[in-house]
Amino acid sequence: ENVVSAPMPGKVLRVLVRVGDRVRVGQGLLVLEAMKMENEIPSPRDGVVKRILVKEGEIVDTGQPLIELG
């Protein structure tokens, strides 16, 4: 699984990683606000951040690609 998608609609509050960062399974990639709750979106696997597909403040839909892992 190379693309991390939004599990719910919401607003991207914070991106916690940068392109080139090594991440571990379960590590927070970004914080999504949904229904006034902050939800940290975890990495599904170990890898390297290849691309960040959203910006802070952006509104996303369920299933929208957020981050690509390499």
Rank of each mutant, 00 (worst) to 15 (best):
E58D: 13
K50Q: 09
E56P: 02
V31P: 00
R14P: 08
G47S: 10
I59V: 13
L13G: 03
D21Y: 01
I59S: 12
L16C: 01
V54L: 14
I41G: 01
L69F: 09
I59W: 10
G57K: 05
T62W: 07
E33P: 02
V19M: 06
M35V: 09
S43I: 03
G63S: 05
L32E: 14
R14H: 08
M37S: 03
L53G: 15
M8R: 06
V3S: 14
E40Y: 13
I67H: 05
P65I: 09
L13M: 15
G63N: 03
T62D: 10
L13R: 14
V49P: 05
E68T: 01
V25S: 14
P9E: 03
G20Q: 10
M37I: 06
P44L: 09
V54C: 01
E1N: 01
E38L: 09
P7E: 09
Q64D: 03
N2H: 13
T62K: 02
V31W: 13
L13N: 13
R22V: 13
L53C: 00
M35C: 00
V23G: 15
K50L: 03
L69I: 07
K50D: 08
A34S: 12
V48T: 15
V12F: 06
V60Y: 12
I52Q: 05
R18F: 15
V3T: 15
V19A: 15
P65R: 03
R18G: 11
P42T: 12
V49D: 00
L69A: 08
S43G: 12
G63W: 01
L29W: 03
Q27F: 03
R51Y: 11
E33N: 15
T62G: 05
G57M: 13
E68K: 02
I59N: 04
N39C: 00
G70D: 03
E33I: 08
E38F: 06
M37H: 15
L16M: 02
P7S: 07
N2A: 09
G26S: 11
L16W: 06
G47H: 08
K36N: 14
L69K: 02
P65L: 09
G70W: 05
I59T: 05
I67D: 00
G70Q: 06
R14N: 03
T62E: 07
V25Y: 07
E38H: 14
L29Y: 01
R22T: 11
K36H: 08
L53Q: 12
E1W: 01
L30P: 00
D21A: 04
E68G: 02
L53A: 14
P42G: 07
E1R: 00
L53R: 09
T62V: 03
G20D: 14
E38P: 05
D61C: 01
L13C: 00
Q64V: 05
D46E: 13
N39K: 13
G70C: 01
N39M: 14
K55S: 07
N39W: 07
V17R: 04
I41K: 02
L32I: 15
R22Y: 14
G10S: 04
L13I: 13
P65F: 04
P42L: 15
R14T: 08
G57P: 04
R18W: 04
G26I: 08
Q64W: 10
S5E: 04
E58S: 14
V25K: 15
Q64M: 07
M37F: 15
V31F: 06
R45F: 02
V54I: 13
G47W: 08
E38C: 01
V49K: 00
M37W: 09
E68R: 01
L69T: 03
A34M: 07
R14S: 08
R18Y: 11
A34Y: 04
S5T: 13
V60R: 04
R24L: 05
I52F: 08
D46C: 00
D61P: 14
P42C: 01
R51K: 02
V48I: 10
V17I: 10
I52G: 11
V25Q: 13
G26Q: 02
E68L: 05
E38M: 03
S5Y: 05
L30N: 02
P44V: 05
R14I: 12
P65N: 07
V60D: 00
G10R: 01
E68V: 07
G28Q: 05
M35P: 09
K50I: 15
K55H: 05
E1C: 01
A6Q: 06
P9V: 15
V60T: 09
V48N: 07
Q27P: 03
L32N: 03
G28N: 15
L32P: 00
V49N: 07
R24W: 09
K50S: 07
D21I: 04
E38T: 13
E56M: 08
E38I: 09
G26D: 13
P42Q: 06
L32D: 00
P42K: 15
S5I: 12
G26V: 08
I67R: 00
Q64C: 00
V12L: 06
R22P: 13
I59E: 02
A34V: 07
P44Y: 15
E56K: 13
V31R: 10
R24D: 02
Q64L: 08
I67C: 00
V4F: 04
R51L: 08
L53M: 15
V31Y: 05
V17K: 08
G70V: 03
L69M: 12
V17Q: 14
K36P: 05
V4P: 09
V12C: 01
M8C: 00
V15Q: 03
V15K: 04
G28A: 04
R45E: 09
E68H: 00
A6I: 08
G10I: 02
D21F: 01
P42H: 08
N39S: 11
I67Q: 15
G57D: 06
L32G: 02
E68S: 02
P7L: 10
E33V: 15
V31G: 13
I41S: 11
N39E: 02
G47Y: 08
L29A: 02
V25W: 09
V49L: 09
P7F: 09
S5F: 11
G28C: 01
